[in-house]
């Protein structure tokens, strides 16, 4: 399952990337394997998506969120 497939309010743990070259900026912002992340809401037109992780809000586009594999969804 990937990050964009979560439903609003669901929490998950980042498992890894579906690409060999994940965007460095996202890594630097703390989106690393093992990070707990929650999908807060979709933007009014369905894209981008507001996530909460490491105590702050980060918004990502669907295309980027679809590159992130997640596990332990609750």
């Amino acid at each position: 399952m990937t990050l964009n497939e979560l439903k609003p309010g669901e929490m998950a743990v980042v498992d890894g990337w579906l690409t060999d070259q994940p965007p460095l900026r996202l890594l630097e912002m703390g989106l690393l394997p093992g990070t707990e992340i929650q999908l807060i809401r979709f933007a009014p037109l369905g894209d981008p998506i507001d996530f909460k992780m490491r105590g702050y809000h980060l918004s990502l586009r669907k295309t980027e969120a679809a590159m992130v594999r997640v596990r332990d969804i609750r």
Binding site: R25, Y56, L58, S59, R61, E64
Partner: peptide, 10 residues
């Protein structure tokens, strides 16, 4: 390709 977007909501 389309651009890349990651933004913090303070």
């Amino acid at each position: 390709e389309s651009s890349f977007f990651a933004m913090e909501l303070p």
